[in-house]
Protein backbone atom coordinates (compact mmCIF):
# COMPACT_ATOMS: atom_id res chain seq x y z
CA UNK A 1 0.00 0.00 0.00
CA UNK A 2 2.79 2.32 0.97
CA UNK A 3 4.57 1.73 -2.31
CA UNK A 4 1.32 2.42 -4.14
CA UNK A 5 1.08 5.82 -2.46
CA UNK A 6 4.71 6.43 -3.29
CA UNK A 7 4.22 5.72 -6.97
CA UNK A 8 0.97 7.64 -7.19
CA UNK A 9 2.31 10.75 -5.44
CA UNK A 10 3.86 12.45 -8.43
CA UNK A 11 0.83 11.61 -10.52
CA UNK A 12 -1.54 13.12 -7.99
CA UNK A 13 0.64 16.20 -7.81
CA UNK A 14 0.70 16.59 -11.57
CA UNK A 15 -3.06 16.07 -11.68
CA UNK A 16 -3.51 18.85 -9.12
CA UNK A 17 -1.16 21.06 -11.06
CA UNK A 18 -3.12 20.42 -14.26
CA UNK A 19 -6.40 21.21 -12.52
CA UNK A 20 -4.89 24.44 -11.25
CA UNK A 21 -3.73 25.40 -14.72
CA UNK A 22 -7.12 24.46 -16.12
CA UNK A 23 -8.95 26.52 -13.53
CA UNK A 24 -6.76 29.51 -14.31
CA UNK A 25 -7.99 29.60 -17.90
CA UNK A 26 -11.49 31.01 -17.47
CA UNK A 27 -12.79 29.97 -20.86
CA UNK A 28 -11.88 26.32 -20.41
CA UNK A 29 -13.24 26.30 -16.87
CA UNK A 30 -16.49 27.61 -18.29
CA UNK A 31 -16.44 24.86 -20.94
CA UNK A 32 -15.84 22.26 -18.25
CA UNK A 33 -18.80 23.50 -16.18
CA UNK A 34 -21.11 23.42 -19.21
CA UNK A 35 -19.97 19.90 -20.04
CA UNK A 36 -20.64 18.72 -16.49
CA UNK A 37 -24.14 20.21 -16.72
CA UNK A 38 -24.63 18.48 -20.08
CA UNK A 39 -23.53 15.11 -18.76
CA UNK A 40 -25.76 15.47 -15.70
CA UNK A 41 -28.61 16.52 -17.98
CA UNK A 42 -28.05 13.46 -20.14
CA UNK A 43 -28.00 11.13 -17.14
CA UNK A 44 -31.04 12.59 -15.39
CA UNK A 45 -32.96 13.50 -18.55
CA UNK A 46 -36.19 11.66 -17.61
CA UNK A 47 -36.41 13.55 -14.31
CA UNK A 48 -35.62 17.05 -15.49
CA UNK A 49 -37.29 17.48 -18.89
CA UNK A 50 -40.80 18.98 -18.91
CA UNK A 51 -42.30 16.31 -21.23
CA UNK A 52 -40.44 13.03 -20.64
CA UNK A 53 -42.98 11.03 -22.70
CA UNK A 54 -42.04 13.03 -25.82
CA UNK A 55 -38.58 11.60 -26.22
CA UNK A 56 -39.75 8.75 -28.43
CA UNK A 57 -42.90 8.48 -30.54
CA UNK A 58 -45.60 10.33 -28.63
CA UNK A 59 -48.08 12.26 -30.81
CA UNK A 60 -49.98 15.42 -29.78
CA UNK A 61 -52.08 16.30 -32.79
CA UNK A 62 -53.19 19.71 -31.51
CA UNK A 63 -49.69 20.97 -30.72
CA UNK A 64 -47.90 20.53 -34.04
CA UNK A 65 -45.03 22.87 -35.00
CA UNK A 66 -45.69 25.46 -32.31
CA UNK A 67 -43.08 28.23 -32.10
CA UNK A 68 -41.00 28.61 -28.90
CA UNK A 69 -43.12 29.71 -25.93
CA UNK A 70 -43.17 29.47 -22.14
CA UNK A 71 -44.66 25.94 -22.30
CA UNK A 72 -42.34 24.74 -25.07
CA UNK A 73 -39.02 26.54 -24.78
CA UNK A 74 -37.78 25.35 -28.14
CA UNK A 75 -41.18 24.89 -29.78
CA UNK A 76 -42.67 21.60 -30.92
CA UNK A 77 -42.10 19.33 -33.90
CA UNK A 78 -44.45 17.96 -36.57
CA UNK A 79 -45.89 15.41 -34.12
CA UNK A 80 -46.39 18.00 -31.39
CA UNK A 81 -43.47 16.73 -29.32
CA UNK A 82 -41.55 19.18 -27.13
CA UNK A 83 -38.24 19.90 -28.84
CA UNK A 84 -36.48 20.95 -25.62
CA UNK A 85 -37.20 17.55 -24.02
CA UNK A 86 -35.93 15.78 -27.12
CA UNK A 87 -32.78 17.91 -27.30
CA UNK A 88 -31.94 17.03 -23.68
CA UNK A 89 -32.51 13.34 -24.43
CA UNK A 90 -30.36 13.81 -27.53
CA UNK A 91 -27.37 14.60 -25.32
CA UNK A 92 -27.61 11.04 -24.03
CA UNK A 93 -27.49 9.59 -27.52
CA UNK A 94 -24.72 11.81 -28.86
CA UNK A 95 -22.49 11.40 -25.83
CA UNK A 96 -22.84 7.61 -25.64
CA UNK A 97 -22.41 7.22 -29.40
CA UNK A 98 -19.27 9.36 -29.34
CA UNK A 99 -17.84 7.50 -26.34
CA UNK A 100 -18.58 4.16 -27.98
CA UNK A 101 -16.97 5.20 -31.27
CA UNK A 102 -13.84 6.54 -29.58
CA UNK A 103 -13.71 3.50 -27.25
CA UNK A 104 -13.96 1.09 -30.17
CA UNK A 105 -11.26 2.89 -32.15
CA UNK A 106 -9.02 2.75 -29.08
CA UNK A 107 -9.68 -0.99 -28.85
CA UNK A 108 -8.50 -1.42 -32.44
CA UNK A 109 -5.83 1.27 -32.48
CA UNK A 110 -3.97 0.64 -29.21
CA UNK A 111 -3.04 -3.05 -29.65
CA UNK A 112 -2.10 -2.51 -33.32
CA UNK A 113 0.08 0.49 -32.48
CA UNK A 114 1.73 -1.30 -29.57
CA UNK A 115 2.44 -4.36 -31.71
CA UNK A 116 3.84 -2.22 -34.54
CA UNK A 117 6.04 -0.21 -32.18
CA UNK A 118 7.39 -3.08 -30.14
CA UNK A 119 7.94 -5.60 -32.94
CA UNK A 120 9.40 -3.22 -35.49
CA UNK A 121 10.63 -4.61 -38.81
CA UNK A 122 8.14 -5.89 -41.36
CA UNK A 123 5.26 -6.16 -38.84
CA UNK A 124 5.64 -2.45 -38.15
CA UNK A 125 5.89 -1.72 -41.85
CA UNK A 126 2.75 -3.63 -42.77
CA UNK A 127 0.65 -2.13 -39.96
CA UNK A 128 1.81 1.40 -40.63
CA UNK A 129 1.22 1.18 -44.38
CA UNK A 130 -2.33 0.01 -43.64
CA UNK A 131 -2.88 3.00 -41.35
CA UNK A 132 -1.50 5.26 -44.10
CA UNK A 133 -4.08 3.91 -46.50
CA UNK A 134 -6.93 4.47 -44.04
CA UNK A 135 -5.71 7.99 -43.37
CA UNK A 136 -5.74 8.86 -47.05
CA UNK A 137 -9.53 8.84 -47.21
CA UNK A 138 -11.06 12.25 -46.54
CA UNK A 139 -12.60 12.20 -43.07
CA UNK A 140 -16.24 11.12 -43.05
CA UNK A 141 -16.19 9.78 -46.60
CA UNK A 142 -14.97 6.30 -45.62
CA UNK A 143 -17.54 6.21 -42.83
CA UNK A 144 -20.29 7.24 -45.29
CA UNK A 145 -19.31 4.43 -47.67
CA UNK A 146 -19.17 1.85 -44.90
CA UNK A 147 -22.52 2.68 -43.30
CA UNK A 148 -24.19 2.94 -46.67
CA UNK A 149 -23.15 -0.64 -47.36
CA UNK A 150 -23.66 -2.01 -43.84
CA UNK A 151 -27.15 -0.53 -43.57
CA UNK A 152 -28.17 2.68 -41.81
CA UNK A 153 -28.36 2.53 -38.05
CA UNK A 154 -26.76 4.31 -35.14
CA UNK A 155 -24.76 1.18 -34.23
CA UNK A 156 -23.40 0.83 -37.74
CA UNK A 157 -22.55 4.54 -37.82
CA UNK A 158 -20.58 4.13 -34.57
CA UNK A 159 -18.83 1.06 -35.99
CA UNK A 160 -17.99 2.86 -39.25
CA UNK A 161 -16.60 5.89 -37.40
CA UNK A 162 -14.46 3.60 -35.24
CA UNK A 163 -13.21 1.78 -38.34
CA UNK A 164 -12.12 5.03 -39.95
CA UNK A 165 -10.78 6.69 -36.78
CA UNK A 166 -8.43 4.07 -35.26
CA UNK A 167 -5.32 4.83 -37.37
CA UNK A 168 -4.74 8.09 -35.48
CA UNK A 169 -4.36 6.18 -32.22
CA UNK A 170 -2.23 3.49 -33.82
CA UNK A 171 0.21 6.14 -35.01
CA UNK A 172 0.33 7.85 -31.64
CA UNK A 173 0.85 4.72 -29.56
CA UNK A 174 3.42 3.29 -31.97
CA UNK A 175 5.63 6.32 -31.42
CA UNK A 176 5.33 5.90 -27.67
CA UNK A 177 5.90 2.15 -27.80
CA UNK A 178 9.14 2.58 -29.75
CA UNK A 179 10.65 4.56 -26.89
CA UNK A 180 9.09 2.55 -24.06
CA UNK A 181 10.40 -0.77 -25.40
CA UNK A 182 13.98 0.45 -24.90
CA UNK A 183 13.35 1.11 -21.21
CA UNK A 184 15.08 -1.05 -18.58
CA UNK A 185 11.95 -2.69 -17.17
CA UNK A 186 10.96 -4.02 -20.59
CA UNK A 187 14.45 -5.38 -21.13
CA UNK A 188 14.34 -6.92 -17.66
CA UNK A 189 11.04 -8.61 -18.47
CA UNK A 190 12.53 -9.93 -21.70
CA UNK A 191 15.55 -11.32 -19.85
CA UNK A 192 13.46 -13.34 -17.42
CA UNK A 193 11.64 -14.86 -20.37
CA UNK A 194 8.29 -13.05 -20.22
CA UNK A 195 6.21 -13.75 -23.32
CA UNK A 196 5.97 -11.11 -26.05
CA UNK A 197 2.21 -10.77 -25.63
CA UNK A 198 2.54 -10.27 -21.89
CA UNK A 199 5.24 -7.65 -22.36
CA UNK A 200 3.08 -5.74 -24.82
CA UNK A 201 -0.11 -5.83 -22.80
CA UNK A 202 1.31 -5.64 -19.27
CA UNK A 203 4.34 -3.41 -19.71
CA UNK A 204 4.28 -1.45 -22.94
CA UNK A 205 0.62 -0.46 -23.31
CA UNK A 206 0.11 0.77 -19.71
CA UNK A 207 3.21 2.92 -20.05
CA UNK A 208 2.30 4.67 -23.24
CA UNK A 209 -1.41 5.04 -22.86
CA UNK A 210 -1.73 8.50 -21.29
CA UNK A 211 -1.11 10.66 -24.40
CA UNK A 212 -3.56 8.45 -26.29
CA UNK A 213 -6.23 8.94 -23.66
CA UNK A 214 -5.65 12.70 -23.77
CA UNK A 215 -5.91 12.66 -27.57
CA UNK A 216 -9.07 10.55 -27.38
CA UNK A 217 -10.72 13.00 -25.00
CA UNK A 218 -9.87 15.82 -27.39
CA UNK A 219 -11.42 13.88 -30.25
CA UNK A 220 -14.84 13.47 -28.62
CA UNK A 221 -16.07 16.80 -30.02
CA UNK A 222 -15.13 15.86 -33.56
CA UNK A 223 -16.76 12.45 -33.20
CA UNK A 224 -20.02 13.98 -31.93
CA UNK A 225 -20.01 16.14 -35.04
CA UNK A 226 -19.38 13.11 -37.25
CA UNK A 227 -22.21 11.13 -35.64
CA UNK A 228 -24.55 14.08 -36.20
CA UNK A 229 -23.38 14.45 -39.81
CA UNK A 230 -24.03 10.79 -40.56
CA UNK A 231 -27.47 10.98 -38.95
CA UNK A 232 -28.18 14.14 -40.94
CA UNK A 233 -27.43 12.20 -44.14
CA UNK A 234 -29.87 9.54 -42.93
CA UNK A 235 -27.08 7.06 -42.23
CA UNK A 236 -27.04 7.15 -38.44
CA UNK A 237 -29.85 7.12 -35.90
CA UNK A 238 -33.27 6.35 -37.35
CA UNK A 239 -36.66 7.88 -36.58
CA UNK A 240 -38.02 8.47 -33.99
CA UNK A 241 -34.74 8.55 -32.05
CA UNK A 242 -34.13 12.09 -30.71
CA UNK A 243 -30.64 12.33 -32.23
CA UNK A 244 -29.55 15.92 -32.92
CA UNK A 245 -28.39 15.45 -36.51
CA UNK A 246 -31.49 13.45 -37.36
CA UNK A 247 -33.74 16.11 -35.81
CA UNK A 248 -32.15 18.77 -38.04
CA UNK A 249 -32.55 16.54 -41.05
CA UNK A 250 -36.25 15.91 -40.27
CA UNK A 251 -36.78 19.58 -39.48
CA UNK A 252 -35.49 20.57 -42.91
CA UNK A 253 -38.84 19.59 -44.39
CA UNK A 254 -40.46 22.37 -42.36
CA UNK A 255 -37.68 24.87 -42.90
CA UNK A 256 -37.52 27.88 -42.94
CA UNK A 257 -41.11 28.39 -41.74
CA UNK A 258 -40.68 26.29 -38.59
CA UNK A 259 -37.06 27.35 -38.13
CA UNK A 260 -36.90 26.34 -34.45
CA UNK A 261 -37.06 22.67 -35.39
CA UNK A 262 -33.63 22.82 -37.07
CA UNK A 263 -31.99 25.66 -35.19
CA UNK A 264 -32.16 24.45 -31.57
CA UNK A 265 -30.74 20.93 -32.03
CA UNK A 266 -27.94 22.59 -34.01
CA UNK A 267 -27.19 24.94 -31.16
CA UNK A 268 -27.01 21.91 -28.86
CA UNK A 269 -24.45 20.24 -31.15
CA UNK A 270 -22.48 23.47 -31.41
CA UNK A 271 -22.30 24.10 -27.66
CA UNK A 272 -21.33 20.51 -26.86
CA UNK A 273 -18.66 20.27 -29.53
CA UNK A 274 -17.36 23.77 -28.74
CA UNK A 275 -16.96 22.90 -25.05
CA UNK A 276 -15.11 19.68 -25.86
CA UNK A 277 -12.84 21.54 -28.28
CA UNK A 278 -12.15 24.39 -25.84
CA UNK A 279 -11.30 21.84 -23.19
CA UNK A 280 -9.11 19.93 -25.63
CA UNK A 281 -7.31 23.15 -26.51
CA UNK A 282 -6.73 23.84 -22.82
CA UNK A 283 -5.42 20.31 -22.24
CA UNK A 284 -3.02 20.71 -25.13
CA UNK A 285 -1.79 23.99 -23.70
CA UNK A 286 -1.27 22.44 -20.27
CA UNK A 287 0.69 19.55 -21.73
CA UNK A 288 2.80 21.77 -23.94
CA UNK A 289 4.60 24.27 -21.69
CA UNK A 290 5.87 26.16 -24.74
CA UNK A 291 2.45 27.55 -25.53
CA UNK A 292 1.53 28.01 -21.87
CA UNK A 293 1.01 31.57 -20.81
CA UNK A 294 2.92 32.86 -17.80
Amino acid sequence: MNSFVQTMKPRIRSFRESMYLLARNKLSLFALIILVILVLGAIFAPYIVPYPEDFYDAVHTNEQLLPPSAEHWMGTDELGRDIFSRVVYGARISLTAALAAVGLSLLIGIPLGAIAGSFGGWVDNVIMRITDVFLSFPPLLLAIAMVALLGSSLNNAVLAIALSWWPWYTRLIRGQAISVKERKFVQAAETIGTSRARIIFKHIIPNCISPVIVQASMDIGGVILTVASLSFLGLGAQLPTPEWGLMISTGRRFFPDSWWYCIFPGIAIFITVLCFNLLGDAIREILDPKTRKN
Binding site: G221, S229, G245, F255, P256, I269, V273, N277
Partner: peptide, 25 residues
Protein backbone atom coordinates in the same frame (compact mmCIF):
# COMPACT_ATOMS: atom_id res chain seq x y z
CA UNK B 1 -9.12 32.11 -31.54
CA UNK B 2 -12.75 31.78 -30.51
CA UNK B 3 -13.79 32.13 -34.14
CA UNK B 4 -11.48 29.37 -35.30
CA UNK B 5 -12.45 26.95 -32.53
CA UNK B 6 -16.08 27.86 -33.17
CA UNK B 7 -15.70 27.22 -36.89
CA UNK B 8 -14.42 23.69 -36.19
CA UNK B 9 -17.25 23.04 -33.73
CA UNK B 10 -20.13 24.11 -35.94
CA UNK B 11 -22.09 21.44 -37.79
CA UNK B 12 -21.71 22.62 -41.39
CA UNK B 13 -25.18 21.50 -42.43
CA UNK B 14 -26.64 23.56 -39.62
CA UNK B 15 -24.65 26.67 -40.62
CA UNK B 16 -26.11 26.26 -44.09
CA UNK B 17 -29.67 26.26 -42.74
CA UNK B 18 -28.91 29.12 -40.38
CA UNK B 19 -27.53 31.30 -43.20
CA UNK B 20 -30.61 30.49 -45.30
CA UNK B 21 -32.80 31.58 -42.41
CA UNK B 22 -30.98 34.90 -42.02
CA UNK B 23 -30.22 35.88 -45.62
CA UNK B 24 -33.20 34.34 -47.38
CA UNK B 25 -36.09 34.23 -44.95
Amino acid sequence: RIFSIGAVSLPTFWVALFLQLIFYK
